[in-house]
Design a protein around this nucleic acid. Structure first.
Lengths: 128, 128
DNA sequence: CCTTGACTTCGAGCGCGCTCTAATTCCTAT
DNA sequence: ATAGGAATTAGAGCGCGCTCGAAGTCAAGG
C-alpha cells in the first residue's frame, strides 16, 4: 500500500489527511457530517480523497475550533463559503470572531497575572 | 429578608455567594461535592455561610477554571491547600499551570494573526 | 480464492462540566 | 398558624465535541 504518493485518483486518503491535519479520521468524518466540510471528492471505490483546498479548509477549521468557536458557528461560516458571494457577511463573522479572540487573550493575560502573583507569594513564603 | 447585612450566624448565604462570585448556586454546591471547596460553615439551620476566605478561594477556582484547568486538577490543588504545609508542591503545580497559560496565550496570538490575515484578504477583496 | 486491512455508514456511547428536578426542611412575615 | 420563599440532599439529565463499535465494501497480495 502506497501513501502520500501518486495514485490513480488523486488526493489524500482520510488516514493521510488525518496525519497531515493532526485530527483523527473520526473527527474528519464527524466534521463532514456536522456540515463543517462540504462533500469531499471520492475515488471510484467510494473512499474520500482530500484535495489541497480541502486540507487548507481543514486548517481553517482547526484554527477556529482552537480559538473556541463552537461547531454550529463554524458551520454557519462554512455555509457562507459554500454558497459563495457573501464576502461582507463572512468578513463580519471573522471580525466578530477576532474580537472574541482578543477578549480571550486579554482574559488569559489577566489570569496569567493572577497566577504569577500567587507564585510570587509562595516563593517569598518558601525561600524569601 | 435581609441580604449582605448582619446576621445571627455570619457569612454569605449561597445565593449571595453566587451573586458575588458570578457562579450559580448549583455550581457552588457542585464544586463542593467535587472536592474543590472544602466544607463551608453552616448556620444552625444547616444552611451554608460563605466566609471572606471561602469567597477568595472561590475566586481562585474561577480563575483556574477560566484558564482551562480541569476540575480534577483543581481538586488536587485544593487537597494540597487543605492538607497544608506542602507549599513547594503547590508552587510546582502553579508553575506548571503558568506554563500552560503562557502556551495558551501564544497559541491564541497565533490564531489571532491567522484571523487577521483572513480579514485583510477579505477587505482587499471587497473594497481594495 | 481468501485473507488482510483500509475504507465506508450509521448510530450508540462517553467524558466533562455543569444544570436541573424532586422531595423535604427551615425561616420570616402576616 | 400558615403561606411563601430560600435553603437542603441525592441523583438524573443535558449539551458539546468528539470517539468508538458493528457490519459491510473494496482492492491488492499470496
Amino acid at each position: 500500500m502506497e501513501s502520500e504518493t501518486a495514485r490513480l485518483e488523486s488526493g489524500l486518503t482520510i488516514a493521510d489527511a488525518a496525519r497531515a491535519s493532526g485530527l483523527s479520521v473520526h473527527t474528519l468524518r464527524y466534521y463532514e457530517r456536522a456540515g463543517l466540510i462540504g462533500d469531499v471528492d471520492r475515488a471510484s471505490s467510494g473512499h474520500r480523497r482530500y484535495s489541497e483546498a480541502d486540507m487548507a479548509w481543514v486548517e481553517t477549521i482547526r484554527c477556529l475550533r482552537a480559538t473556541g468557536m463552537p461547531i454550529a458557528h463554524i458551520r454557519r461560516y462554512a455555509e457562507l463559503v459554500r454558497t459563495g458571494g457573501n464576502e461582507r457577511e463572512r468578513l463580519a463573522l471573522l471580525k466578530e470572531h477576532r474580537e472574541a479572540v482578543r477578549a480571550q487573550l486579554a482574559e488569559a493575560q489577566g489570569h496569567l497575572a493572577f497566577v504569577e502573583r500567587k507564585i510570587a507569594t509562595y516563593e517569598e513564603l518558601i525561600d524569601g
